[in-house]
C-alpha cells in the first residue's frame, strides 16, 4: 500500500491530538508513516504506533529545535525523495502551513492548505470565503502536500506493528539562518490550544472589559475548552491578540463553539462558522451571530454564562 507521510506535531514528546487525527485520516489513504522532529521525538513512537503509524521516522536532534519551521521541511524533503510517498499530510497550523510551503517549493509539488477532508483518491475538500463555498481540489504536480485543519477527523486508535527509523539530518544553510534565542511561554497551561481545541468559548464586545473575560474563562475551563475573543475585544485590549478568532485572526472549527457577547460581524463568522455546533448568548435579538446559531439565548451573558458554568460543573 502507498506510504503516506504524516508530520507529527508534538510538544517535548507529547503528541498533539491533531496528529492522531491525521494518522486516522492517513489510514484511509494508504499506509501511514509518521515523521517526528526535535527534542523528545523518540518518546512519541508508542503513541504514534497506537494510532496506526506503521513506521516512525525520528529526527531527534536538539539542533533542529534551534530554528523555526525550516528543519521540519528539510527532514520531509530528505524523506520524500527516496520514499516517494503518495502524499504528505501536515496539520494546518501556522507552523504546519509554513513547513508545507517550504516543502512544496523544494520538491516542486502542489500544495493544498486548510483541507477539511481528504478522499481516498487524494481529492481535498476546502471550505473557503469564510465557509460560504466548498471546493474540491487535487494536486496535479509532484507529491501532494496537504495541510489538514484540526478537528476534521475523529481520531481512532488502531495499534499494530511499527518500525522505528532514526534519521540523521544535515540542515542546509538556508534552513539554519534564523536562530531561536529564547522561548517565552505565555499560554495558560491547563487549556487546550485554540487551533485544535474541541470546544472554544469566545467573548466579544458584550463582555465589557478584561475583567469580564473571567466568566468566559470559567465556562471554558468547565467544558475543558479554549478561550477565544472577537476582534472588538482584542482591539480594546481586553484579551491578548493571539486569541482572536476571525478573518484576521485564527480560523477554528471545533465540535462546539460558544459565542458570548459577540454580534457576529462577517469578519468573526469567517473564523468560526464551520464549527459543528454553535451556541450563542447575546442581549441583542437582532445580532447576526444568531443566524449561525444551533442554539441561542437572548439574554445578559453575565447571568446566562455563570448559570451555564454552574450547570456544566453540576452535571459532570
Amino acid at each position: 500500500m502507498a506510504e503516506i507521510l504524516v508530520l507529527a506535531d508534538h510538544s517535548g514528546g507529547e503528541v498533539k491530538k491533531v496528529t492522531l487525527e491525521l494518522l486516522t485520516l492517513a489510514r484511509s489513504l494508504g499506509e501511514p508513516s509518521a515523521v517526528v522532529v526535535g527534542a523528545g521525538a523518540g518518546s512519541t513512537v508508542d503513541a504514534l504506533a497506537e494510532y496506526g503509524a506503521r513506521r516512525v521516522y525520528v529526527a531527534e536532534d536538539a539542533e533542529l529545535d534551534r530554528h523555526p519551521v525550516a528543519p521540519a521541511a528539510e527532514v520531509l524533503v530528505q524523506l520524500v525523495g527516496p520514499h516517494s510517498p503518495a502524499a504528505v499530510l501536515i496539520a494546518s497550523t501556522a507552523d504546519g502551513k509554513e513547513i508545507a510551503a517550504r516543502l512544496a517549493v523544494r520538491i516542486d509539488s502542489g500544495l493544498i492548505t486548510d483541507a477539511v477532508q481528504v478522499d481516498a483518491d487524494l481529492t481535498a475538500t476546502q471550505s473557503i470565503f469564510g465557509g460560504s463555498v466548498i471546493v474540491k481540489s487535487r494536486v496535479t504536480r509532484g507529491t501532494p502536500v496537504i495541510t489538514v485543519r484540526p478537528n476534521s477527523t475523529a481520531p481512532e486508535a488502531a495499534a499494530g506493528p511499527c518500525e522505528r527509523e532514526d534519521l540523521s539530518i544535515s540542515l542546509s544553510d538556508g534552513a539554519s539562518r534564523a536562530v531561536i534565542t529564547n522561548r517565552v511561554e505565555e499560554k495558560h497551561d491547563a487549556r487546550p490550544e485554540l487551533a485544535e481545541a474541541a470546544v472554544v468559548v469566545s467573548g466579544g464586545r458584550g463582555v465589557g472589559g478584561a475583567d469580564g473575560f473571567k466568566v468566559i474563562e470559567a465556562l471554558a475551563d468547565a467544558l475543558g475548552g479554549a478561550v477565544g475573543a472577537s476582534r472588538a475585544a482584542t482591539d480594546a485590549g481586553w484579551y491578548p491578540h493571539q486569541y482572536q478568532v476571525g478573518q484576521t485572526g485564527k480560523t477554528v472549527s471545533p465540535q462546539l463553539y460558544v459565542a458570548a457577547g459577540i454580534s457576529g460581524a462577517i469578519q468573526h463568522r469567517a473564523g468560526m462558522q464551520t464549527s459543528k455546533n454553535i451556541v450563542v448568548i447575546n442581549k441583542d435579538p437582532e445580532a447576526p451571530i444568531f443566524e449561525v446559531a444551533d442554539f441561542g439565548v437572548v439574554g445578559d451573558l453575565f447571568s446566562v454564562v455563570p448559570q451555564l458554568t454552574e450547570e456544566v460543573v453540576k452535571r459532570k
Partner: peptide
C-alpha cells in the same frame, strides 16, 4: 437553530442542549 429568550433559566436551557 433554536433561539430562546432568557427568563432566568437561559444557562440551564443551554446546559440541556
Amino acid at each position: 437553530g433554536t433561539v430562546v429568550t432568557d427568563e432566568g433559566d437561559g444557562g440551564v436551557k443551554i446546559a440541556e442542549y
